[in-house]
Amino acid sequence: MEDTKKQKNYGQSVLLALLFALLSALVVSQVVARHQSESALTREQQEELQTYQSEVDALEAQIQSQKTEINRLESQYDMALQSLREGNKEFYELYKKYTDDLDAYRVKAGLTTVQGSGVIIRLDDSGLVEGSIIHDTYLVETVNVLREAGAQAISVNGQRVLPTTEILCLGPSIRINGTREFPPYHIYAIGDPEVLTRAYRDSSIYKTIVAQNLIYDVQTSSSVVINAYSGNYKSLITKLFP
């Protein structure tokens, strides 16, 4: 009887000891695993962040140096103009007329960066509904609605809309001015903000986008900046003969 009781107590102690051992093993392994995975993840992300941050810094430095160069060239150009005016007033006037003309037509052609009041529309694939994505035709129709509402300049993801601009589905991306652009799509338009917004909200394409549970956002802005076409426009007039 005593023996059996002792044996039972002994058995229970062994069980407890085992439980303790198991628990401590669990704790140690969890702490180790957590520490490892956390440091691996953050290290990877930190590296990614740092790579991007240094890329941003490098780009900003490049832009700044280009701007410094532009300032230098501008003052040089002003000096050249000045001496032209002093040397030959008549020719200077003629030159000025030609360059003013050229500058005005460059604006009409979409070859200069412009700003003005307008709208910024953001369209993105639905994160909720499988297969609910922004199709090229949605962008084509959106751009057409903005044109109809009197937009004077439009860009899609920074690509200036030109007479030759295509908006074409290319796998998960959309080709615009020969460049692949990925969602989200930011459509910038300069024009009367109220007219543009109303026209867009009343359009059938807007209703489609809402019904498809796509992500959309329409904002008016007093200062929309639309980039110049940055490609070589001369490659887009090779088949045209006056």
């Binding site: 992300q45 990614e48 962040l49 991007y52 941050q53 890329e55 941003v56 780009l59 900003e60 490049q62 832009i63 280009q66 701007k67 160069e69 532009i70 060239l73 501008e74 150009y77 360059t99 960066t113 993801n157 920074g158 980039n227 110049a228 940055s230």
Partner: peptide, 28 residues
């Protein structure tokens, strides 16, 4: 990371236009 990526895209576009502006000025 997403913000930085978007910033990089914007800065690249800006750099392209600034470079173009500089080239034109140089030509002129």
């Amino acid at each position: 990371i997403a913000d930085l990526r978007a910033t990089i895209l914007n800065l690249n576009a800006t750099l392209e236009t600034v470079e173009m502006e500089k080239d034109e000025l140089q030509d002129r």
